[in-house]
Design a protein around this nucleic acid. Sequence first.
DNA 1: CTGATTAAGTAACATTTGTGAAGTGCCGTT
DNA 2: AACGGCACTTCACAAATGTTACTTAATCAG
Lengths: 192, 192
Amino acid sequence: MIQNLLNTIESCVALNKEDIALCEAYFEPVLYPKNRIIEEEGQIPRYLYFVVSGFIRLFSYDKDGNEVTSHINCPPGFITSYRHFSDQVPAGENLECISECHLLRISKKDLDYIINESPALKDFSIWVFQQSMSYNENRAKALATLTAEDRYLHFMKSHPDVLHNVPLQYIASFLGMNPKSLSRIRKKITGR
Amino acid sequence: MIQNLLNTIESCVALNKEDIALCEAYFEPVLYPKNRIIEEEGQIPRYLYFVVSGFIRLFSYDKDGNEVTSHINCPPGFITSYRHFSDQVPAGENLECISECHLLRISKKDLDYIINESPALKDFSIWVFQQSMSYNENRAKALATLTAEDRYLHFMKSHPDVLHNVPLQYIASFLGMNPKSLSRIRKKITGR
DNA sequence: CTGATTAAGTAACATTTGTGAAGTGCCGTT
DNA sequence: AACGGCACTTCACAAATGTTACTTAATCAG
């Protein structure tokens, strides 16, 4: 479990023994079943989650009450409503397990503590935050410039694992299109 | 000039005399003409800019070579390719003055220095960074869930000043639609 | 096993948005 | 004043996407 996290961190920054001990002491392993909502819209996000296995999403509702998926992780990676977690203000999104998920979680207080103790972990936490920023920038650019079909083709190439493990309706709303439009696009693509 | 900046900061955090002195010492006023590109794609962003007056945008190019505007500020506010400025890596976007602009700029080195000297300014810089994150989240959500017409209506209400001072072609690409589609939508709206 | 529920696919049609050609008005240059 | 360039508009048509209604397949509770 924890080794998975440490490998991910070390692919970005070098860790010494104290850094590793901090992670082992403050990241808590948890297991959630499929469809469990672990952070709720309107509540202050309690934890930052590292996904060891499973698939997880952020979603909210549009003006007609339809679910809109704004983030789908692929393990290994971090997920939370970053901005609301950092500010400790009520989130605008729900965090839901799409499948059974093995996670490692850390509270805001503990995260603040360990990044204050360890410069390497501080650098890493900034990196995680900035990755989330890139994610939204890239999503907005794709939505603004690509057709629905191109958005799907691009998603298919970059996240094949998500495609095979996440309901298509979630992927459709993440890609900013109707599930039936996604069906049509998928049919068109397989036929060539 | 600088008072405009200080007012903006103080609407978020309280400043003491030392904080104010730091801002006065390290933010440098600059004046750029209309259409000047002040940070270039592929280059490391040198400064964070505070817009005192004027309009400014971030833009890049899509696969067909068309300009895509990804951010249009309205004064007073900050602008830069935040992530690339923070990391000091080559930016993916150009920063261009849409009109003559009075700006206050600060280099990465100086920003790091003043936020290290002043907890209030550090809090504020984090807030600025997070505002930029919200901006992209909101843009992505609008692009994913609203029709072109609704995106324009929403933009019209929230940024009337931009609408009246920025070429419509820039607004169209920011809203993820063709300039002609925007023309049609504008015509439809005025006729009711 | 049966019936109910849900996700996904299909088809026909409606609506929205993109595209190409052409026109208007504005602004600056000469 | 005449000219060219540019931003914006307009129109007709094409293409993409949304919508409604229906079908299929898989899953789950009884």
